[in-house]
Design a protein around this nucleic acid. Structure first.
Ligand code: SF4
Ligand code: SF4
Lengths: 145, 145
DNA sequence: AAGATTTAAGAGTATTTAGTCGCAAAACAA
DNA sequence: TTGTTTTGCGACTAAATACTCTTAAATCTT
């Protein structure tokens, strides 16, 4: 059951790390994050570019450059990230991938899936990076499960 | 959000089709199913082999051969299929793929995810092929969403 | 026995996702 | 201006997933 792609998970972990560094001033380099979280530098870079282009991050090149959250971590929600990295239609997906589906002639799991999906979306909608950063220690961001 | 692999969805659609044919006696050929549901014959074959090896289906070669459910459709549940085709650990997966995770130091979505996963599993556990077959018309099994 | 039908099995190809590499562009420092 | 740091970007490679093809084995029909 792969809900999120690797790229999204990496991006998320990195963003949460950023959220835990909120007392630091200025930019945090991708190199540092890559090293601290043990994520491929170039892979992260690509993900961050997408996030920068979509207004989540601000980036700056050159010495002491790096990236920074574009808004306070309290105002960035899981849903924003997921929508950007997984696509806007992320929550429109059907469970069984059957045909002509939808409300019209729903399969047995349709009603359930609709509710479950809505719950997941809501959870993503109310969970901020700040909240995640507060609950997670740096150590736990390092190795993947 | 890809919950189930293509192979699993195909297998599921095919099994539901089988369930709708319960008044027919004898075996249903993979060729027929492949044609009726517009799914690649060889791909289906592979999935069916797995299901046969795991006791869901009974198969028979030669003219008028094919496959048949090994138990009444009322006694085959979504969960059985998913466990076989996606692996036994399907519901053990973590949402964010963070580290050392689990109960110890859960991330903010952990509790929610635990509940959502349990609900999904329960739904899969109580939904039988018969139930799905009753709710779905053959037409709707044909084209994928 | 010979040929037709149908699943079993495994090799082979294509597409998608994941991850790597190299260099250009921006900014700074000396 | 020259060199260094750091992001931007596109091409490249690797692995996983999805799909196809070929041949064998079982069973029936004649
Ligand atoms: S009825 Fe709903 S859940 Fe079921 S296959 Fe169709 S869209 Fe998916
Ligand atoms: S705390 Fe739970 S949901 Fe969160 S990353 Fe860890 S295992 Fe996954």
């Amino acid at each position: 059951m792969k809900v999120l792609s690797k790229g999204t998970v990496y991006g998320l972990r990195a963003l949460v790390y950023l959220a835990t560094q909120k007392d630091r001033t200025g930019y945090v380099s991708i190199g540092e994050i890559s090293e601290k979280l043990d994520i491929s530098f170039h892979f992260l870079t690509k993900t961050f570019q997408t996030l920068t282009q979509n207004g989540i991050l601000e980036s700056y090149r050159g010495p002491n450059g790096g990236i920074a959250l574009n808004k306070p971590a309290e105002q960035i929600f899981l849903l924003d990230i997921v929508k950007i990295l997984e696509g806007d239609d992320f929550f429109d997906k059907c469970l069984l991938g059957l045909p002509g589906c939808g409300e019209f002639e729903p399969c047995p799991v349709h009603d359930f899936w609709k509710v479950a999906k809505a719950a997941l979306k809501n959870e993503f909608e109310i969970t901020s990076l700040a909240e995640m950063g507060a609950k997670v220690t740096d150590e736990r961001l390092r190795l993947s499960a």
